[in-house]
C-alpha cells in the first residue's frame, strides 16, 4: 500500500491536453461551418464523448484505477440514459398535446419538424 498515488509521465498529459484542444476546435468548426441535421449532431456527440473520455481516463486517472472504483463510479450514471430515453420517447406526444390543447391551430395538427430537438437555421 506504499504507492497510493497516481504518477505518470508528463508526456501523457501533454498529449491529452493537445487532443482536447483539437477536439474543441473541431466541435467549434462544426458550428462555424454550419453543418446541419444528423451529421451535425453526430459530430457534436462524437467530439463531446472523445473529450469527456480523455478527461476522465487520463486527467482524472480513471484508466489506472482498480476496476472496483471504475465500475462503482461509471456504471450508476448509465441509468440516466434511461431517463433521457423515456423523456425523448414521450416528447412527440407531449408536443402534439400542446398543439392540440394550447396551440392556436387546432385543425389540422401540423407535422412535427424532422426532429423537433433542432431548430432549423
Amino acid at each position: 500500500m506504499a504507492e497510493v498515488g497516481q504518477q505518470h509521465p508528463i508526456k501523457v498529459y501533454f498529449l491529452v491536453w493537445a487532443l482536447l484542444f483539437v477536439f474543441s476546435i473541431a466541435s467549434y468548426l462544426v458550428d462555424f461551418f454550419a453543418f446541419e441535421g444528423h451529421l451535425r449532431w453526430f459530430l457534436i456527440v462524437v467530439f463531446m464523448l472523445l473529450k469527456a473520455g480523455f478527461i476522465v481516463a487520463v486527467f482524472m486517472h480513471m484508466k489506472w484505477e482498480r476496476p472496483t472504483l471504475i465500475t462503482a463510479i461509471l456504471v450508476p450514471p448509465l441509468v440516466l440514459i434511461v431517463l433521457m430515453y423515456l423523456l425523448a420517447y414521450e416528447a412527440d406526444y407531449a408536443w402534439a398535446s400542446r398543439i392540440v390543447y394550447f396551440g392556436d391551430v387546432v385543425e389540422p395538427i401540423p407535422e412535427p419538424p424532422p426532429s423537433h430537438a433542432a431548430v432549423p437555421h
Binding site: L80, L83, L87, A88, A94, W95, I99, G103, V119
Partner: peptide
Amino acid sequence: TFIFTSFLVSYMAVRMTQTDAWPE
C-alpha cells in the same frame, strides 16, 4: 453528475416538447 444530467435531460425534454421557436 446526476444533478447536472437531470438539468440537461430536463432541458432536452422542454426543448423537444416546446411549441415556440427555440433561439439559435
